[in-house]
Computed example of a mutant assay.
Amino acid sequence: MTTVTTPVENSPIVLHLQPIIDLTDDQFFEFCQINRDLHIERSATGELLIMPPTGSETGNRNAKLTVQLGVWAERDGTGIYFDSSTGFKLPKGAERSPDAAWVKRERWNALTAQQQKKFAPICPEFVVELRSPSDQLQPLQEKMQEYLENGTLLGWLIDRKNRQVYIYRPGLSVECLENPVSVSGESVLPGFVLDLSKIW
């Protein structure tokens, strides 16, 4: 007998540490290193957001996304690309790990070697979040808005469940594309086109 389970939408576990514990940036980095099997982020107000590793199918789609971004970035040469295991310390205090990101090379090179080794204190110009079957949509939408508030110039929230792509740009309303074949990097990533047939 085979049992089929449907993924249940869930939210990350939220740990409230303050005012009892106030982790420094170095302590938070070390906490993440000793708990490498978990995806851990920190909100601007200090809460720890703990998520289990992604499922294999979502991980595969995320890898395909990162490969496409990487091929373009290597050819373009003007920036550095990152996968979902990368943490960034955003200007307003949160530490986030987008599923894919890109930073202009001159901004990356302006960081010290020590800053580059930990959670770099920089907000990527471009970020992508890929919704897994168990992710609630609203927290991801809030995260995308947070990226914009911290300096992101272009963001994509890819909702595989509903085959939609939400496009985030500073000062503009969110655009929702229904079942697009591809999506363009516009002026932020000129010439980059993500083939969504490999993501759906």
Rank of each mutant, 00 (worst) to 15 (best):
L48G: 00
A63C: 08
E95A: 04
A94D: 04
G79S: 08
I50M: 05
F31C: 02
T78I: 07
D37T: 13
A110Q: 10
T54W: 11
K92L: 14
N60A: 09
Q33E: 05
R42L: 07
K118M: 01
D83N: 15
E47R: 04
G59P: 00
R105A: 14
L111N: 09
A113Y: 06
A94K: 02
N35G: 06
S43A: 09
T45G: 05
R61M: 09
K117F: 15
N109V: 01
N109C: 02
L90F: 03
R42I: 02
A101Y: 11
T45L: 13
L111K: 11
M51G: 00
H39G: 04
R61E: 05
A113E: 14
E41Y: 10
F119Y: 15
L90H: 01
G70Y: 06
G59Q: 02
L49K: 12
K92M: 13
M51N: 06
D99Q: 04
R105L: 15
G87D: 10
S85Y: 01
T45K: 10
W102C: 07
K92E: 10
T66W: 08
V67L: 12
Y81A: 02
N35H: 15
P98H: 08
T78L: 07
G77R: 11
E106D: 15
K118V: 00
T86Y: 10
F31R: 01
A94G: 03
A113S: 08
G93H: 13
A110F: 12
F31P: 00
V67R: 10
G55D: 12
P98Y: 11
A100N: 03
R42G: 03
H39T: 02
V67S: 05
N62A: 07
T58Q: 04
I50L: 15
L90K: 02
V103D: 04
T45H: 11
P53Y: 13
K92T: 02
T54K: 10
H39V: 06
T78R: 13
N62H: 03
V71W: 13
Q116V: 01
K104Q: 05
R107S: 14
F119G: 04
G55Q: 00
L111V: 04
R107P: 04
A94L: 06
G46R: 14
P98K: 07
S85M: 01
Q115N: 11
G46H: 13
E57L: 11
I40N: 05
G70S: 11
